[in-house]
Amino acid sequence: MLKNPALAALTRWAAQHPDLVPAGRIGIAFSGGADSTALLWAARELWGQKRLCALHVNHQLQASAAAFAHHCAQACFDLGVPYAEAVLQVEVVPGASVEEAAREARYLALSELAQAQNCALVLLAQHGDDQAETVLLALLRGAGPRGLAAMPAQMQRHGCTFARPLLECGAAELRHWLKAHDVSFLNDPMNADPAFRRSRIRHELVPVLARLEPAYRQTLGRSAALCAAADRQIQERASQHLRDCLQPQGLHLATLRALGGASAGEVLRLWLRQNGQRLDRARTDELVRQILRTEQGAHRLELRLPACVLQRQGAFLLLSRGEAAP
């Protein structure tokens, strides 16, 4: 009989990361799609339904959101798996991305659901094809090592541990198992919408790559792992430099200038991330260019971000809460 590939991957992951698997309850981020359905069935077989809690986040961003939530609740009832749901109203500040705001809201909601259900670990169902698409998206936008590292295998968010045990699996094999066992799942219409670049990569670019390089998923996954290792070293240096630059008044510009352009850019990006802000590379490069000439001028250096203002005050660069950029 055909075995669930998610179960094989989850079993290997659990054996390799015994320190991450809690003795108590484990949360499963459950959207009702094929991938999270395969993961839920695998976790139920490995640990038993009473040890799990399926966590569903309803963003209310699609007309079918309520139907997805109903499907998830019914599927968990049929499996005997405890179920918890969060309904969100995603707020997007001017200048910010709806997709990014929804993603951040989802992680926060999942962590809150997990804590309420006494789950120290939440498993996410992204697989190897998702990882490959994320690497390709990062390449097409000219990302550096941090972007090319794609999705981490595990991470900490909002006091909760998240892990992706299916990164070695492919989408087709997961769906093949579900259909062979007549397990119902939902198809997200966004996955086939050509308006989204990820969808076009999945349906137009990936088939070409698969013909040219059948092991593309493993190859791109390996590249992502190498970029993640490189980014960790970059972030360690940036953290040290940030400690050197940061004073109660703000970032000391002379110390920041002395680092040079590349290191100053990494420090700025890290500082902004720690304050809940993100800046694309083009604007970061322009900001660094202005910082490098502050000794000769740029006294009116100012950059408006969503809900924040970045500006020079004397020898320091300050980030203050203010009106969003128009």
Score class of each variant (00 low, 15 high):
75 A>P: 02
107 Y>A: 04
20 L>D: 00
30 F>V: 05
73 A>Q: 15
10 L>Q: 08
257 R>S: 01
78 D>M: 10
226 L>Q: 11
213 E>D: 09
318 L>D: 00
216 Y>N: 01
200 R>T: 05
122 V>R: 14
152 P>T: 03
106 R>F: 04
233 Q>V: 14
308 C>D: 01
58 N>M: 11
121 L>N: 06
290 Q>T: 10
216 Y>T: 06
151 M>Y: 12
185 F>M: 13
37 T>S: 07
136 L>V: 13
236 E>I: 06
11 T>P: 03
310 L>R: 08
115 Q>S: 06
211 R>D: 06
186 L>C: 04
48 G>M: 09
279 L>E: 00
246 L>F: 15
56 H>V: 06
122 V>I: 14
142 G>P: 02
172 A>G: 03
256 L>G: 02
193 D>V: 03
8 A>P: 01
312 R>W: 00
102 A>T: 11
21 V>A: 08
296 Q>H: 10
13 W>T: 08
78 D>K: 15
87 V>L: 14
164 R>V: 11
67 A>D: 13
31 S>K: 07
41 W>P: 01
186 L>S: 01
321 R>C: 05
192 A>Q: 12
139 L>C: 00
298 A>G: 02
29 A>M: 08
21 V>Y: 04
323 E>V: 07
45 E>Q: 15
291 I>Q: 01
183 V>Q: 10
144 G>M: 05
264 A>R: 03
167 L>I: 09
138 A>H: 00
128 G>C: 02
273 R>M: 04
128 G>F: 03
300 R>T: 09
131 Q>H: 14
155 M>V: 11
240 Q>I: 13
195 A>S: 13
315 A>S: 12
220 L>P: 05
223 S>Q: 13
38 A>V: 12
213 E>T: 13
18 P>G: 09
290 Q>L: 12
178 L>S: 06
293 R>N: 00
147 G>C: 04
66 A>R: 11
128 G>W: 06
7 L>V: 04
281 R>C: 01
170 G>A: 01
264 A>S: 08
105 A>E: 01
295 E>M: 09
245 C>I: 09
184 S>D: 12
123 L>S: 12
83 Y>N: 03
110 L>T: 13
68 F>H: 11
252 H>E: 10
83 Y>T: 04
295 E>P: 01
130 D>Y: 09
194 P>M: 11
236 E>T: 09
148 L>W: 01
176 H>P: 02
309 V>E: 02
90 V>E: 04
269 R>L: 08
248 P>C: 03
198 R>S: 06
182 D>H: 15
21 V>G: 03
75 A>Q: 10
315 A>C: 06
90 V>W: 11
202 R>Y: 02
100 E>Q: 14
112 E>R: 15
225 A>F: 06
213 E>W: 14
292 L>K: 04
237 R>T: 07
247 Q>L: 14
174 L>E: 03
177 W>S: 03
9 A>S: 13
262 A>K: 07
241 H>S: 06
14 A>V: 14
287 L>I: 08
323 E>G: 04
184 S>K: 14
75 A>T: 14
183 V>W: 09
68 F>T: 04
78 D>H: 07
221 G>M: 10
269 R>W: 00
205 L>W: 05
262 A>V: 09
124 L>V: 13
208 V>I: 08
